[in-house]
Amino acid sequence: MSSEPAPRLSRGARPSDDQLLDGARAVFAQVGVTAASMEQIADAARCTKPTLYAHFRSKHAIYLAALRRELNRLQAWLFNAYDQAAGRPAHEQIHTAMAAIFDYAEDNPDGFRLIFTTEAEGHLAAVTELITTITTKIAELIRAELTALGHKPDDDLHAVAALTVGTAIAGVQQAFQAPPQKTHELLELATRYTEHALTMLIPRQPQQRDVQHDPA
Rank of each mutant, 00 (worst) to 15 (best):
L187V: 12
F116C: 11
G23F: 06
P15Y: 05
H123W: 08
V172S: 01
L74N: 03
I169R: 08
E140M: 08
E121A: 13
R192S: 15
T164K: 00
L130Y: 09
V165M: 02
K182Q: 14
I94E: 01
A139K: 03
T48D: 00
V165T: 07
R192M: 15
P206G: 09
H55I: 01
M200V: 06
V33D: 01
L201Y: 10
T136G: 15
R68V: 12
A86T: 11
H95V: 12
A81G: 02
G32D: 10
F28T: 08
L130D: 07
P153C: 06
A97F: 09
A148T: 07
H184T: 15
T135S: 11
H184V: 15
L71H: 00
E188R: 09
L198A: 12
T199M: 12
L187G: 03
V211I: 15
R209N: 07
G23Q: 05
A99P: 05
L78V: 14
L201W: 10
A159G: 01
I115E: 02
S58D: 11
L186G: 03
T164W: 00
Q19C: 06
P180Q: 11
D18T: 12
E185M: 14
E92F: 01
A29W: 05
V211N: 03
G87A: 02
Q208A: 14
A29C: 03
D103P: 04
A61I: 03
W77I: 11
A54Q: 11
D18C: 03
R113M: 13
F56I: 05
T164V: 04
A190F: 07
L187Y: 09
G23T: 05
D17F: 08
L149H: 09
V33P: 04
I94M: 06
K182I: 10
A13S: 07
I134M: 11
C47Y: 03
F79Y: 14
Q207W: 10
T167P: 02
N72K: 13
S16H: 04
A61R: 04
A42G: 02
A61D: 12
P7R: 03
A178W: 05
G12S: 01
T164E: 03
R113G: 11
M1T: 13
A144C: 06
P15F: 07
G23V: 06
I41F: 05
T147I: 09
A190G: 09
D43V: 15
P179K: 11
K152P: 02
P50I: 02
A126H: 07
W77M: 09
F56D: 03
R143T: 07
A168R: 00
L124N: 09
M1R: 14
N72D: 15
H91A: 14
D156T: 13
T132Q: 10
S3N: 14
L201D: 10
K49Y: 02
D17V: 04
E185I: 13
T164N: 08
A162S: 12
S16G: 07
L20P: 08
V165L: 01
L198Y: 02
P89R: 05
T167R: 11
I41T: 04
A6V: 04
E106S: 11
A42S: 08
F112M: 08
S3K: 13
N80Q: 15
E195M: 05
S58R: 05
T194H: 06
D22V: 07
T191Q: 10
D22E: 13
A216Q: 12
L146V: 00
G171M: 01
A66V: 08
E145R: 14
H123F: 02
R57D: 14
L114M: 06
F28Q: 08
Y193D: 13
F102E: 06
P5A: 03
